[in-house]
Every structure is written in C-alpha cells, then in structure tokens.
Amino acid sequence: MTQSKISVKNLNMYYGDFHALKNVNLEVEANQVTALIGPSGCGKSTFLRVLNRMNDLIEGVKVEGSVLLDGCDIYRPEEDVVNLRKRIGMVFQRPNPFPMSVYDNIAYGPRIHGIKDKRKLDEIVEKSLRAAVIWDEVQDRLYKSAIGLSGGQQQRICIARLLAVEPEVLLMDEPTSALDPLATMKIEELIQALKKEYTIIIVTHNMQQAARVSDVTAFFLTGDLLEYGKTDTIFTKPTDKRTEDYITGRFG
C-alpha cells in the first residue's frame, strides 16, 4: 500500500469548550484534488487550517490526534511550523495580494526563504506566474501594484505567490467565492492543471465546483466527517441520507 500524502487520524479539535472537529479520519492521496464540502460552520475551513497549523494563531485551540504529512506528525512538539507552512501553502477566500508590486508579491516567498540573486528571482517569478496562468496578463505590469488587478487576477497572483515557494500541498479555502463565474472557471482550470504536480485540498460551498474539480470529496457536518470517497460515488450514490440531502440542496 502506498503511503498517503496526508493522513489524519482520530483528530479532535476544540475552540475552548467548543468541540469543532470530532474524531476525523481522512487520507489524502498525492496528486489528487480533495474537496471538503458541507454547510457553513461544519468545520471544513477549520479542518483545512489544522493542516498547516494556521489555528495556532488563535488562542484556546486544542488539537488531539495526529496529522501525518509523508508519515511524519506535524503536531510533534519539535515540528518547525515555519517550514511546515512552506510545504503546505494556502490560498484564502478573499484574494489577498500584498500592497506591493506584482513582482514583489511573487518574490516575497523566495526572498524570505533566503533567495537574493536577482536573476534567480526573475526566473522564479516568471515560472510561477506562468504556472498560475497569469503571466500573459501581467507581464507588462510586473512593477505595478497588484492591488490594481481584478479579483480573479488577484487570486491567481496569490496562487502564483504560493507556487513560488514550491509547496507540496495546496490548501484552498473557498478560493472562488469572491469571484465572478468567468474568473471562477479560470481558477478551476488552473486547479486541474496544478494537480499534476501538487496535492490539492479545496474547501467549497459550491457543489458543482466540487463535482467538477475534485477526485475525492469529503462531507462534513457539525464537526463530523460524515462521508468521504470518490467524488463520482459521493455525488451519484451517497451512502448517508444527510449527504444526499445536502448535495441535492435540501439544506445547507
């Protein structure tokens, strides 16, 4: 049996007294797109943030169980969180490029990780922008502020910024919820292209999106991972009645 890229075992998470994730077990395979779906407040975004330890920033959070990345527990006390976040990158719900030039946005990651050589940086910037399929749109305005771009372009800049640090896993927290349909389509195409090289986990509110982009779907409800499996199976013959109700739009 091949080892999963990420393996979550008996994961429980609490915000103070609130039990946000209840005994979650999930295997994420490399080079696949895993979609996390479920109604608001079901814990899917929380779960995503467990994977790159973004929840560390919030006080009163307690995590139990284990999250293995390539077989290694990321909640070990000696885990280097900074290095972990370099390996597991994140795209946020609202596009959040830094208020600096396109170039500096992309070069930010490599720079903080110690790359100073201008030629090398140029190379990384171009490669990342090409990989995020935004190079053609911004190559003439690399040195202008990224804030002036459209929402969809900004989100692809954010993805390019992430690719520049060469992560292994991409976490996407509703990356298209602030975008129009056309921009959404571009991001989805991008996700399809990226999965050849990266392992992608995407949180989405949009059922069609989950069906379109993902290989595996996990359905969360009030902190429980109710069901997970091949996207085709989940969407055509879910085993749990509640999954079916949610997918067919009866609640949520």
Binding site: N83, R85, F98, M100, Y108, I112, R161, L162
Partner: peptide, 25 residues
Amino acid sequence: PRDYKEASLALGSTRWQAIRLVLIP
C-alpha cells in the same frame, strides 16, 4: 486586512518577517 499577516505566515514567514516586510510597509 488580517489577511496580510495570514498570507505571509502561510508562505512560511516568521511573525517578525510578516511584521517587518508586509505590515509595516
């Protein structure tokens, strides 16, 4: 926006790098 800091941390920056290179500028 709170996002600036999170975006920086999510790229593997330290808190100090986020403050010095993103927030203060």
